[in-house]
Amino acid sequence: MRISRLALFSALTLTGLASASVAFASNKNGPTDGEIGLQRAVTPVMESITNFNNYWLVPIMVIITLLVTVLMVVILIRFRASKTPNPSKTTHNTMLEIVWTLVPVIILMAMAVPSMKLLYYQDVIPEADLVVKVTGNTWNWEYSYPDHENVDPYISNIVDIPNDEKFGLSHAQIIAKIEARPASEPRLNGRPYLLASDAALVVPVDTVVKVLVTSNNNLHAFAVPQFGIKIDAIPGRINETWFKVNAGEEGQTFYGQCSEICGVNHSFMPIEIMVVSKAKFADWVANDGAFSAKYSQNNSGVVKTATAK
């Protein structure tokens, strides 16, 4: 009795700790060093994922692992050979076997209900206010706005130096090299190296954005952790997903990375998304994909680039 209560206590404590730490969210965008949970959610879908993760899956995983481990340790101590020289002969217990089949069934069924809800919420795309098309190339992303033909499709490359100049350098040295380049070339300006691009995807806040994703050659995957989206870019197919960035997140920039191996520069095709207010987005569209003077501050990351190849 004492031991089972101890097990329950430690399970609950550790669950609490685990949920507390995954629930602890900084306001930082992109990954955080040393963090153990998901990135900060900024869309309703990612909020659902985070809740399902923090309040269902992580607690269940921690409790099951701890129960089995504690039970194992208790058995190993209690039934050590020096204490029980004569082992029991029991090899069957129908009731017990039924219980340990049915209890997991019940747990899994309880888990499947919210899981299905999350899946359908995520996958059934609501009516979109804006469509953006993302095409994976080797090795950059091309963004276009089918709803706004005046905005030319543009290519988004990583802000980086060539691979053969990077060998043996620390990130600080690479960043220094990037920042020392002539003003005509893209700089990081404080944005995270390997996540910053020379042309962000620009989307309005609080708007249902449908993303069409395809590829020109190899497979890629368009992934933005804080939006809770990840969808493969497959040649010959157009996949779709959606996001709606919460109100209040305008002015923020979010990051992702290509998430399906696509060749030598797979590590170097980041996704950068700039979320702006609806008015600012309208201005950006009206100016054929550039901000007018009124909005041009703080847009260091966005460089108007040439038309797609």
Partner: peptide, 8 residues
């Protein structure tokens, strides 16, 4: 293992 005579 339950009820056994366990040697590690």
């Amino acid at each position: 293992m339950w009820g056994g005579s366990i040697r590690m």
